[in-house]
Amino acid sequence: MRARSLFIAVALPASASIAGTCYVVQPMAGGRAMSPAPAVSAERLEAHVRALSEEFVPRDYTHPQNLNRAAAYIRDELERAGGRVSVQDFDVRGTTYRNVVASFGPEEGERIVVGAHYDAAGPYPAADDNASGVAGLLELARLLSAAPPGTRVDLVAFPLEEPPFFRTGHMGSAVHARSLRAQGVKVRLMMSLEMIGYFTDAEGSQQFPLAVLKAFYPSRGNFITVIGKLGQASAVRRVKRAMRKASPLPVHSINAPRWVPGVDFSDHASYWDEGYAAVMITDTAFYRNPHYHTARDTADTLDYARMAMVVQGIHAAVLRLA
């Protein structure tokens, strides 16, 4: 996740309508009638994060051996969960990298894609960015295996989200998205899991790039966020509504133009480039997590109980979309 704005509001003129503000912020009135959600193991989430952030380090693009070890670990876990696993190899600057894909549900037809990048920015543990997203992906695999969805769901782990390949065609997600478009695959929605493990109840712990955001979002970093671009508010609303019903964890969202810095700062943008609908699910990165892109981004700093709630919400969203 790039070190720019992740959690963005669109600065609207004073004459902007309430309807416009609602479109951006997606408020949801009324109580939260909880739906039964399957249990997610906080202990397994922590074990996955520790494996990625402690055993396979460093796992930036200059250490392909560790990236390959991480990919093998992910593949083994997805196979153990019961997925139909395949590996998509691709070469960048003379080095082979790989996307790991696990499919659940029907083999044919329209599909839902959920992805997370497993590389790191530099020689850091990168527990939140993005071992947390990959851990969520692996636990989601267990839930989908236990009750296969009616629509095909592909879980994809990507390398090369971080610099110097960020926003280039060399990103693992860009390779995957292009391959789907080339095959004529219809994607109902792509969800990018980008940092889902850091939460805090401290007052003032949630930071913002614009002061106006304080009027619309909490000051405590105790929530998860769904981010989408203009024109795809319906997808954001469906994901947000499903996640809110799956657990007590607060869920907020925003829709903004893609040119606003931060709106496209993860793998979901690769699918936008191919014309697919996509959203990002995130804890807002450095606007909350002071350990972002440092050696302090370790497994001990994450909240696995609330991270488990995020996975419950993502699972509920997948089922709603399917």
Rank of each mutant, 00 (worst) to 15 (best):
R2M: 15
L6I: 05
F7V: 13
V10S: 10
L12V: 11
S15F: 14
A16W: 05
S17E: 05
C22V: 14
V24Y: 08
A29Y: 04
G30N: 11
G31D: 14
M34V: 06
M34C: 08
M34Y: 15
A37H: 06
P38S: 05
P38N: 02
V40M: 06
V40C: 08
V40I: 06
E43S: 10
L45R: 08
A47C: 04
V49S: 09
V49I: 14
E54I: 07
E55T: 10
V57L: 11
V57C: 11
P64F: 07
N66D: 04
L67C: 11
A71F: 00
I74E: 01
I74L: 01
I74Y: 00
R75N: 10
D76E: 15
L78W: 04
L78E: 01
E79L: 03
R84W: 11
R84M: 09
S86R: 15
S86W: 10
V87L: 10
D89R: 15
F90G: 14
Y97M: 08
Y97P: 01
R98G: 05
V101K: 09
V101Y: 02
P106F: 04
P106W: 06
E107P: 06
R111T: 14
Y118R: 03
G122A: 00
P125D: 14
A126S: 14
A126P: 08
A127G: 06
G133C: 05
A135Q: 00
L137T: 04
L138K: 00
R142Y: 02
S145V: 13
A146Q: 12
A146V: 11
V153F: 09
D154C: 02
V156G: 02
V156K: 01
V156F: 00
V156Q: 00
F158N: 07
L160K: 01
L160M: 00
P163H: 02
P164D: 06
R167G: 03
T168V: 05
T168M: 07
H170M: 13
H176F: 15
H176E: 09
L180I: 12
G184V: 03
G184D: 02
V185M: 01
V187R: 05
E194D: 15
E194L: 14
M195L: 00
D201P: 09
E203L: 12
F208N: 05
F208I: 12
V212L: 09
K214N: 06
K214W: 00
A215H: 10
Y217R: 08
R220H: 03
R220L: 00
N222K: 08
I224G: 07
V226M: 03
I227K: 03
K229V: 09
G231R: 03
Q232Y: 15
A233F: 05
A235I: 09
R237I: 12
V239S: 04
V239H: 02
K240D: 02
R241T: 13
R241Y: 04
V251K: 01
S253W: 03
P257F: 07
V260M: 15
F265M: 14
S266P: 11
H268F: 05
Y271D: 08
G275H: 07
G275T: 13
A278D: 09
V279R: 06
M280P: 04
T282Q: 10
T282P: 08
T284K: 08
F286I: 13
N289T: 10
T294P: 13
A299D: 13
T301D: 13
R306Q: 11
A308W: 03
G313R: 01
G313L: 03
H315C: 07
